[in-house]
């Protein structure tokens, strides 16, 4: 199907190579983008290990594990879709892509449940943030030490030595953990939403039989993007949920 070769390319092979390389370079920029957040995570985890452990204990490992499995499954569907498109089975590719989209939506749904839980427990950074050290996670229940961050939210508060109890300080550090949690998983979820839309468009084209052995570039490059978003989660999951 040479009809797909744009005027400025010599042949389909050159065009495929260019599109593929373009997506790899785009993914390199994404690595640097997420890499900045991973760098911030690393720096703060090194500075405040105790708070990060405490924050991590309030995350639901079961939900995280299910989501990891869901995403890995979606990547399998995408790989199958690329294979189907490359072997002239455009409709089958559409089916696999729909499978991947469903998995993506399930992931976002579970993520939404987790976010709702954080809102319910006032774990969202900001004026209403609260963290009860002893009642969280595996520790014994003891609510007496709770102090709302509101009371200490005076300018430069933390630098005024002697006015902060260890628990109040810890609560602020945990708020920092949750700031990173929301920044990183929120950005990841945004990429998931974009990915779902992207796969939706490609799935529609595939259903119409647009792809074949000689032209399946959109399936290939959107698949690359999806795998990348998956891999970001594969790093986020242990950093946020598992390392305690």
């Amino acid at each position: 199907m040479t009809g797909h070769v744009a005027h400025h390319f010599d042949d389909a092979e050159q065009q495929f190579h260019a599109a593929n390389l373009g997506m790899w370079i785009f993914l390199a920029t994404e690595v640097m983008f997420f890499g900045s957040l991973f760098a911030a995570y690393t720096a703060y985890r090194y500075m405040f290990p105790e708070a990060f452990v405490a924050g991590s204990h309030s995350l639901d490992v079961v939900m995280g594990t299910i989501n990891t499995a869901v995403l890995l499954l979606s990547s399998l569907f995408v790989a199958l879709a690329v294979n189907a498109a490359a072997t002239n089975r455009s409709r089958a590719a559409a089916g696999f892509l729909v499978g991947a989209i469903v998995m993506g939506v399930v992931f976002l749904g579970i993520k939404a449940v987790e976010y709702a839980d954080k809102f319910a427990h006032n774990h969202v950074p900001g004026a209403h943030f609260q963290f009860h050290r002893e009642s969280e996670g595996e520790h014994a229940v003891d609510g007496e030490h709770h102090v709302s961050v509101n009371e200490s939210a005076i300018p430069g508060g933390d630098f005024q030595a002697g006015h902060n109890s260890p628990d109040r300080t810890l609560e602020k550090r945990v708020e920092l953990f949750f700031s990173l949690y929301f920044a990183m998983t929120g950005l990841h979820a945004l990429h998931m939403v974009i990915g779902v839309v992207l796969l939706g468009i490609v799935a529609y084209q595939a259903w119409r039989g647009a792809y074949s052995q000689t032209y399946f570039t959109p399936v290939e490059v959107s698949g690359l993007y999806w795998h990348f978003v998956d891999i970001v989660w594969v790093f986020l999951f242990p950093l946020l949920y598992l390392i305690r």
Partner: peptide
């Protein structure tokens, strides 16, 4: 109010 750099939270 998601304070990554906020010194009040220990941000750098």
């Amino acid at each position: 109010g998601i304070g990554i750099f906020d010194p009040k939270l220990g941000g750098d």
